[in-house]
Design a protein around this nucleic acid. Structure first.
Lengths: 337, 337
DNA sequence: TTGAAAGCGCTAACAT
DNA sequence: ATGTTAGCGCTTTCAA
């Protein structure tokens, strides 16, 4: 193994000088810098991460806590994770992967052992057992999602209330008077995961405000569940002409079910999705949608964390404005009988 | 921060004794052990990961390199990742997440800086630029997938050749004489990712052996691509009564397309999938399938790595036997006209 | 069965 | 502008 002492010897300088050349934390004559950099190159020197972390009290590693639970949509999570890793690397940090089932103990372990410098926690529930741990940890963290009590936390997420509202407004603008929200599996609501509830709140509020009838129902991921749920919905509310779906994996089956039931999209039934843009664009017809900007959220989460690590201030709450893209799946409501 | 010295003082022993109690590397009187453990508990001591890594030359961290490329099926990757993290934790290791686009340099960085002790590399291509790096690294690694030259490597994967064969055998046993393989997007073949080619090899070999006509085609992920591909296939080979699909995201659209084209599954068209069991079971009808045992592969990969780290021997090549489960989507071939 | 002490490779205060 | 040196917190040899 090549150490900093080897480099120092090769360049004819002190080890500290090598360190300073590498960190740029003090000015170095260009002659010295060149010799050191040449030595680094020739010897193939890489600073030892543990030694550096021990001496500097910084591991340059962020923890990413990802959920592995029922009802979560995997591709969106991967998009988050990718954005987090990519952004972390831009700031010369690495990412340690924790699964949510490590729970409180997992957070305490990586934080208290100084394995990581900061934490990104995904899929936060309204009453999340990990939130008190994060408060006590005295280590920077960013939550993706909002718990009930956000005191002392930094949270970032799509503004799902606004997302729900915008879907309703879009459909109401098109003249739809009865619309339904086809939501996540009931387990997600029961877990009190904020995003599902917040979308529902926005949906309901906007329906009230616009004077349209808004009904909502959870929906499981199987084809039969989709079929049963939609049939039930149309039986209870035959006037439904607009559907909002916040449940990525059922989008395909849902289109299929509507076809089977003889409802053309969009002529008989306008359909909006809250999902990643590429998913919306891949469907036939392409779906009008509110995008889930996983890349942007992951990026902002890491940027906030880095700012905090450098002693800077970041907004406690960041709600990203939803972006609605009308596509082929929504059109003016059919004339009423 | 609580250090080992604090614990030693509290317990009235030397720091080294605390270390030995924690590691179990030498025998300790039960009296001493109790006092130390009590002190650890009372003070809430956690060993500092960097200090431990620096002194012991072991970070207890594994790198997991995941692909982020076109044509990869995300849920399967997440299943791998989850299995790797879960298994790593069982052996008291953590997992650092690297994206494949860090390439050679990324591997060298984490290995040469001693950030990690070993590497799990997913989605290996036949001629992968990272393979020579792994050979030179003198750090244990396990590849998930097989490159062309496996010399000096440890590789593990599903036996996709056998998977392709088993699908053909199952359909041939049912009397099908013309069958098609609906494969991954062409980008995956062009990248020479082993698994797609190996399935194809098994498919072709078994078709020859069984004297059935086996045709194959790649297929992109959009609905239109599926429709176009299947239409073309049926135009070129009207006698096809059996379909094998190795392309998880198109399974839903494919069922839909077959329905549109008036081909009932399984009465007119038997359908087999190479995919995770839960995906096969979620379809209507449930699909006969060869499972991709991501959990098992991830688990074995980590177990091999741990064995290597402890100086043990592991098999260079591990091919997991495919498991075929007949379900509702395959039945005897219709009588020929 | 336990303790003392020498590092592990680096950073950063303190000197010059 | 650069060098000297004292740690960072732990593991492990060497001694007893």
């Amino acid at each position: 193994m090549v150490t900093i002492a080897d480099v120092a010897r090769h360049a004819g300088v002190a080890a500290s000088t090598v360190s300073y050349v590498l960190s740029g934390k003090r000015s170095i004559s260009s002659d010295t810098r060149d010799r050191v950099q040449e030595a680094v190159r020739v010897l193939g020197y890489r600073p030892n991460a543990s030694a550096r972390a021990l001496a500097s009290q910084r591991s340059n590693v962020l923890a990413l806590v990802i959920p592995l639970r029922t009802g979560m949509h995997v591709p969106v999570m991967m998009q988050f994770a990718t954005a987090v890793v990519t952004t972390a690397r831009r700031f010369d940090h690495d990412v340690l992967l924790l699964t949510a089932d490590e729970g409180r103990e997992g957070l305490e372990r990586v934080a208290q052992s100084s394995l990581v410098d900061a934490l990104v926690v995904m899929d936060v529930e309204l009453h999340d057992e990990r939130v008190p741990v994060l408060r006590e940890l005295s280590m920077p963290s960013v939550l993706i999602g909002f718990p009930a009590d956000t005191d002392g936390l930094t949270c970032i997420d799509l503004d799902f209330v606004a997302a729900g509202e915008r879907c309703v407004d879009h459909l109401a603008d098109l003249g739809h008077r009865t619309i339904a929200l086809l939501g996540t599996p009931s387990a997600v609501y029961e877990r009190q995961t904020g995003f599902a509830q917040r979308t529902l709140a926005g949906f309901t509020a906007a329906a009230d405000r616009r004077g349209v009838l808004g009904v909502e129902t959870p929906c499981e991921h199987t084809f039969d569940a989709v079929l049963g749920t939609v049939e039930q919905l149309l039986r209870d509310h035959p006037d439904i002409t607009g559907l909002v779906v916040q449940n990525e994996p059922i989008i395909g089956p849902l289109l299929d079910v509507l076809r089977r039931l003889g409802r053309r999209v969009p002529e008989d039934m306008s359909l909006m999705a809250i999902c990643a843009d590429d998913v919306a664009e891949r469907q036939v017809p392409q779906l009008s949608s509110v995008a889930i900007p996983a890349d942007e959220i992951g990026l902002q989460a890491v940027e906030s964390l880095i700012t905090k690590l450098e002693g800077g201030q970041v907004p406690a709450m960041t709600l990203l404005r939803p972006q609605l893209t009308p596509r082929a799946s929504t059109c003016p409501a059919p004339a009423r009988h």
